[in-house]
Structure formats: structure tokens, C-alpha cells
């Protein structure tokens, strides 16, 4: 019996050691200053590009960047920011999972005196202090999406579905810009009105957007077009249309211009994207961090204009060769 217990104990030790080895990080012998980046959702390539570019830029200046996946949950992100604070990182970069809830986490970093930078998605709560925020001009980008939509179906009009992500302030602005252009178009063209017949949550991801679209097209076979607030969402919409056999008749306008999205534009699955420049956003963020550390004041909000990207652009794009 005692032998058995001994074996059990040894086993426990063994297992834990194995686990420890599996999770073993490199020993921090050299004190490279660390910057922590918690992303909204690493299943979206957009945030991977920001993370990778941040890493590359930081290495040039002697910093190390830890990128973690917020998994689209405010709770996870809160824990990650706590861990960054415990680790005493130089700066925290956040792409909030929830523009409002993140404020509680950012206030903790403020209290610890660690500067916080947001990229792509803003924190909408003013009580949380942000040193600098970099984003695409989402409102302008939304207008561009509206322009593309008018270009595609402006002469005939018809029903439009919006796949939204209302928790993200950036997406709210995109939809606002989009809606304004559509309304302006409708005011001028009484005969070919573009009717935004429904705004459904698409979660900003492929799966949920596919579900929402599939449910919607069940009862709306006359759907003319879809505006999806990002590329995963647009691709999800396409998958649902294809399943319903409607992919030929419905125009999709996306947003982002990440590689899969550009490829889809080249293949004619998506009509156009206002494209963003995540690598540029990361570079500017790193620049702001360096400015802050240097004792200068970076700009509070930096907006990067989006640009429309059509099939002609995709055909010439060296990235897709």
C-alpha cells in the first residue's frame, strides 16, 4: 500500500514537471525591456500582422514584444493586462475586445504607471488614460465602402444586409459612414433606392457571419448586396451565399484588405474592400511608444486613411502572385 502511494506521489511530481517543461519559457537572463500586446482576436490575420510588425519594429530598437490572444473576451484580456502589469512591462498595447469593458483593465495599468496604447480599436471610456491611439479612419473607410456599394448596385438599387460588430467602436463608425453615403444616394435617386433592410451581428468572424447570413437569405431571396464590417465577416457571408446558391447574384463589400480578403476580391467573391494598413498602424504605434519613452508627447489620435481596392488592383497586386 505504501509503495502504491509512493508511486502515486512520484507520478504527480512527474506530471507536473512535464507540464512545466511544456510551458517552459526561456529564462530571462538578459534584461530586454518588454512591451505587451493583447490582441482582440488572433484568428483574424489582421491582428497577426499588427503583432508581427510590432515584434519586428521593437527588435530594431532593442525591445521585445509579447503578443497574446484576447480571444474576443473582455475577461481574458483583463487577466492578460494584469499579468503584463505584474511583469512590469514598459508599455501595454491593446486592441480591445470590448471598447467599454477594457476601461477597467486600462485603469489598473494607469494606476501602475504603465503607459497604454491602443491600436485599431479604441477604448470609449474617458476615465481610462490612453497615451496614443492609432486607427484606420473608419468613418472615412465606411464612406468608401458606401461609394463602392453605389458603384456596384447604384443603378438598380435593392436590398442590402449589413453584418455588424456593434461592440467595436471602429465598426460602428464604418457602418455610420456607409449608411450616410447610402442615404445621400437614395435622396438623389428615388427610383433605384438602396434599402438597408437589416443589420445583423456577424461577430466579426467567419462562423457567426455565415450563420447570420444563412438565416437571413432563407426569407430574403431578393437580397442584392451585403456590407460586412471586415474580411472574415465578408468571407463568412460568401460561404452562406454559396451554400444557398446565391453567390452570383449578391454583391459583397468587405473591409480590411487582408490577404484572404484580397484574394477573394481577385477571385470575384468580394466586390471591393476599403483596405487598411495594419503594418503601418503597428509601425506608428511603435513610434509612439518610443516617443513616450523618450520623453516626448506622441499624438493622442492618429488616423490612417483607408483606400478602395477593386479586382483591377488585386490583379496587379504582387502580394497575390
Amino acid at each position: 500500500m505504501i509503495m502504491k502511494q509512493f508511486i502515486q506521489l512520484t507520478y504527480a511530481v512527474l506530471v507536473s514537471t512535464l507540464i512545466s517543461c511544456g510551458g517552459g519559457g526561456e529564462n530571462a537572463e538578459v534584461e530586454t525591456p518588454v512591451i505587451g500586446y493583447t490582441t482582440k482576436d488572433l484568428s483574424n490575420p489582421f491582428f497577426n500582422i499588427i503583432g508581427d510588425t510590432l515584434k519586428a519594429e521593437a527588435t530594431k530598437h532593442g525591445y521585445e514584444v509579447i503578443v497574446v490572444d484576447g480571444g474576443d473576451r473582455a475577461e481574458t484580456q483583463d487577466k492578460q493586462i494584469d499579468d503584463f502589469i505584474s511583469r512590469k512591462v514598459k508599455a501595454i498595447v491593446v486592441s480591445p475586445c470590448d471598447s467599454k469593458s477594457v476601461a477597467a483593465s486600462i485603469r489598473k495599468a494607469n494606476k501602475a504607471g504603465i503607459p497604454v496604447f491602443t491600436v485599431d480599436l479604441a477604448c470609449t471610456d474617458e476615465t481610462a488614460e490612453i497615451v496614443s491611439h492609432v486607427e484606420t479612419d473608419n468613418y472615412g473607410g465606411g464612406k468608401l465602402a458606401g461609394d463602392a456599394m453605389v458603384k456596384a448596385i447604384g443603378t438598380v438599387g435593392g436590398k442590402v444586409l449589413i453584418l455588424h460588430l456593434a461592440t467595436a467602436d471602429s465598426c460602428v463608425q464604418r457602418v455610420t459612414g456607409f449608411t450616410e453615403v447610402i442615404e445621400a444616394h437614395n435622396a438623389k435617386n428615388g427610383s433605384a433606392k438602396i434599402v438597408i433592410s437589416e443589420t445583423l451581428p456577424g461577430g466579426g468572424n467567419q462562423q457567426d457571419s455565415k450563420k447570420s447570413t444563412a438565416a437571413f437569405v432563407q426569407g430574403n431571396k431578393d437580397l442584392r448586396a451585403i456590407f460586412a464590417i471586415n474580411d472574415p465577416s465578408a468571407l463568412g457571408a460568401y460561404a452562406a451565399l454559396k451554400q444557398a446558391g446565391m453567390e452570383g447574384g449578391v454583391t459583397i463589400v468587405g473591409f480590411d484588405g487582408e490577404k484572404a480578403g484580397k484574394q477573394a476580391i481577385k477571385d470575384g467573391k468580394i466586390f471591393a474592400d476599403p483596405i487598411q494598413y495594419p503594418d503601418e498602424m503597428a509601425r506608428i504605434t511603435m513610434d509612439s511608444i518610443l516617443k513616450y519613452i523618450d520623453g516626448r508627447k506622441p499624438e493622442r489620435v492618429i488616423k490612417i486613411p483607408a483606400k478602395l481596392y477593386y479586382k483591377e488592383d488585386a490583379d496587379k497586386d504582387p502580394e497575390l502572385k
Binding site: 507540464i19 511544456g22 517552459g24 519559457g25 526561456e26 518588454v34 497574446v68 487577466k79 499579468d83 511583469r87
Partner: peptide, 16 residues
Amino acid sequence: SGMNQTGVGEHMQKVV
């Protein structure tokens, strides 16, 4: 928490 602080990647965390 330990894996976050030692910089273990997100995917490896799930495996562990």
C-alpha cells in the same frame, strides 16, 4: 498566469 508572464504563446497554452 505563469505562462503569460514567461511569454509562452497562446496556442501552446491551450496544449498545456
